[in-house]
């Protein structure tokens, strides 16, 4: 189920966006920054694993 990843990341991004907007309107800019950084790092964690798989596939395919 690879398509899951798209929805997972997109959903996560939207949640982070809503939280960021909410903190901004509450004048809690510090928390807004923290939320956006944490969201970015979490998504990066998912993405990195995926990219590692991708590199492995390319490596075996083209015998690099």
């Amino acid at each position: 189920m690879q398509v899951d990843f798209i929805f997972k990341v997109a959903g996560f991004g939207m949640i982070v966006a809503v939280l960021y907007w909410m903190f901004k309107t509450q004048n809690r800019d510090d928390l807004a920054t923290v939320v956006s950084v944490v969201g970015m790092v979490t998504v990066l964690y998912i993405t990195i694993q995926y990219i590692a798989k991708f590199f492995e596939a390319v490596r075996t395919m083209f015998q690099l």
Binding site: D4, K8, G11, I15, V16, V18, L19, G39
Partner: peptide, 12 residues
């Protein structure tokens, strides 16, 4: 609410 959703998404 949103943190619960996010955690659920991560664990899914």
């Amino acid at each position: 609410a949103l943190g619960g959703l996010a955690l659920g998404l991560i664990l899914l």
